[in-house]
Simulated assay, not measured.
Amino acid sequence: MSPTIEPWLREILRCPLCRNELVDATGADGGAELHCDGDCEQPGQRRAYRIDDGIPVLLAEEARTFQV
């Protein structure tokens, strides 16, 4: 989904809030996102971070929150 992110960088990216691993995903608009792989702040709550031109935007205030 996000082939422009270098593999070495993918290995070290983490959610800035809970420090869980980030996994490739697709957002509701069809764009590439990184999803937090674990609960973030509350049980069942996760964060989604958009990718702009191959650059992950890992700002908590700009993340989309969703439930699993």
Rank of each mutant, 00 (worst) to 15 (best):
M1Q: 12
M1G: 14
S2H: 10
P3C: 03
P3S: 10
I5R: 00
I5D: 01
W8R: 12
R10A: 11
R10C: 05
E11D: 12
I12M: 09
I12W: 09
L13N: 00
R14F: 04
C15R: 04
C15I: 08
C15E: 06
P16M: 07
L17W: 13
L17F: 11
C18T: 05
C18R: 05
C18H: 02
R19T: 09
N20P: 11
N20R: 14
E21A: 14
E21F: 13
L22C: 01
L22A: 06
V23I: 13
D24G: 09
A25M: 05
G27I: 07
G27T: 07
G27M: 01
G27P: 03
A28L: 10
G30R: 01
G30L: 08
G31D: 04
G31V: 09
G31E: 13
A32I: 04
A32S: 12
E33F: 15
L34N: 01
H35A: 07
C36Y: 02
C36H: 06
D37G: 15
C40R: 00
E41K: 14
E41N: 13
Q42V: 14
Q42C: 14
Q42H: 10
Q42K: 15
P43D: 08
P43A: 06
P43R: 05
G44P: 12
G44N: 06
Q45A: 07
A48C: 01
G54S: 11
G54M: 07
V57P: 08
V57R: 12
L59C: 07
E61I: 07
E61Y: 11
E62C: 08
A63P: 01
A63H: 05
Q67F: 15
Q67D: 04
Q67H: 09
